[in-house]
Each structure stands twice: as C-alpha cells, then as structure tokens.
C-alpha cells in the first residue's frame, strides 16, 4: 500500500478523534477572529430598529434542544435588541419543547434589562395545529391561545397584551426554525395576512428559505451559528456563538482537508486501476 492509498483509508475512529481535538482546542484558547456581519443579519437588525418603540413582536421558538446551539444564542441576541428598544415581546412556539428554551432565554435577558412578566413580555406557550394556529392568529391572537398564557393566567389583565388583536398589531414575527414551520409562516401569516416576518433558522433549513426572501414574503433569513455570531456582534454582547465561530472555522478547514485527502487517494487509486 503506497502513501496515497493509505491516505484514502484512515480509520473512522481516527477521523472522529481528530475532529474532537480540533473542535476542542480553539475553545481553550478563546481565540476570537473579528467578522463583518453578513448583509442578511444587518437587514434584519435595521428592520427591527426601524420599528417604533413599544411595538409588539412575536417570537416563535419552533425548535428544541437538538438545534439549541445554533438558535438559542440567536434568540438571546435578538431579545437584547428588542428589550433595549422597549419592545413588547410575545413568546410562542409551534414545537412544544421550544417553549422552555425560549422561556429560559427571555427570563434571562428580561432580568438583565429589568423587564417584567405580563408588562413587557409574556409566554403564550404552544398550541398544536401549526397552519391552523397561524390562520387562527390572523383573526384573533388571544383567542387562539384561549385568552390565557401558558400557565392559565388571563391575558386581558396583562398590559403587554393591550391593543393586540391580530397580525396587524404586530410589528414583526421572528421565527426560530429547525424544521418546516418557517415555510408555513411565509405561506400563511404572510401570504394571507401580510404579516412581516424574519426567519432565523438552523443552517440546514436556511437555504430552503431564500426563495421566500426573494419573493418578498419574508424580510431576511438568518442562517445558523454565523448569523447568531453576527447578531451578538451587532448588539455588542459577545456570547457562545462568537466564541463558537472560531471553532467552527477550524472544523470547516479540517473537513475540507479531509475532502482533499479523500480525493487525492481517489485519484491515485483510479490511476493505479487504470494502469
């Protein structure tokens, strides 16, 4: 076996080990490489800034722990922008297990900014039915959630809900998407009711959302950890996404090196076979 052949036959466990090391070391040194925010993130940030203070914003946490590393820092950064501009935040979810994650983020950021439950933000919770919930919210948001928050407390007593009937009273819906819920936001809330939507999504989902952006159905697509890091940068509060991006870069370089190695081996073995 020559060097090229052995190059194309590294044991998978060695690959795993190298990956693990490359993903760990940059963290230990806390290297941070500055990045210029991508245009989509800047667009979303500017749009939110253009909303009048005190606007109501719906946060829809349509993800769960399986995509938390990407979406949780993005949500936290956006919440910082919202609370610093005194927006009213309505937290909901189309994935039941997104509720506790969004609630955790909103509680933490609200505490930092001295915001109060019921006055500045509310957790509406989750209702099954996806598209039906979106259509129903287009008519009556409180009624869709049975006029109570997730813990059964009446919404009509909460200042945060004053004057909110349907999408017309919402400045922007910001969806955090790990699946196809983002498509439905565009297809139902926007196409039918003209709701304004920003979609933050995992990197897996992001490419599928670009057609909606080009057609003007959504304002911007925020894709993956990079978008989260850019947002942390814009709100001047560095967090896990910013530190994670350095690691992300090194792992990408490693994977590209793997691809090149694999291909060198491939070409070499092809040559041998041919001769």
């Amino acid at each position: 076996m020559n060097i090229f052949e052995s190059m194309s036959k590294i044991d998978r466990r060695i690959i795993y080990l190298i990956l693990f090391i490359v993903a760990t070391v940059p963290f230990l040194f806390k290297v941070e490489i500055p990045m210029k925010p991508t245009s989509d993130v800047v667009e979303a940030y500017n749009f939110i800034n253009s909303l009048p203070e005190g606007s109501a914003v719906i946060i829809s946490a349509d993800y769960d722990a399986s995509s938390m590393p990407e979406l949780q820092p993005m949500l936290t950064a956006i919440l910082r922008q919202l609370f610093s501009r005194n927006m009213r935040v309505l937290v909901m979810s189309h994935w039941a297990l997104g509720v506790p994650l969004a609630q955790k983020a909103v509680e933490e950021v609200a505490r930092e900014y001295g915001k109060k439950y019921g006055v500045d933000y509310v957790v509406l919770g989750y209702r099954p039915g996806l598209q039906a919930v979106m259509v129903s919210m287009g008519k009556d948001i409180p009624k869709t959630f049975d006029n109570v928050d997730y813990k059964n407390r009446p919404l009509k007593d909460m200042p945060v809900m004053q004057g909110i009937k349907n999408y017309d009273d919402i400045g922007v819906i910001i969806g955090f998407e790990a699946g196809s819920v983002g498509d439905f936001w565009a297809q139902f809330a926007n196409a039918r009711y003209g709701a304004r939507i920003i979609l933050g999504s995992t990197a897996v989902v992001a490419p599928d959302l670009y057609p909606y952006k080009q057609a003007g159905q959504i304002i911007a697509v925020l894709g993956g950890l990079r978008a989260a890091a850019d947002y942390e940068n814009l709100v001047h509060h560095k967090g896990t996404a910013t530190y994670g991006m350095t690691t992300q870069a090194f792992v990408h370089f490693l994977i590209i090196a793997f691809i090149i190695l694999g291909n060198i081996g491939y070409i070499a073995t092809q040559r041998k076979r041919r001769s």
């Binding site: 990956l19 990197a203 993956g224 690691t247 792992v251 990408h252």
Partner: peptide, 8 residues
C-alpha cells in the same frame, strides 16, 4: 455547518 455547530 449546522452539524458542526451542534457539536460545538
């Protein structure tokens, strides 16, 4: 990109 982020 997404899978790497989850590992991170």
């Amino acid at each position: 990109m997404a899978r790497v982020s989850l590992l991170i």
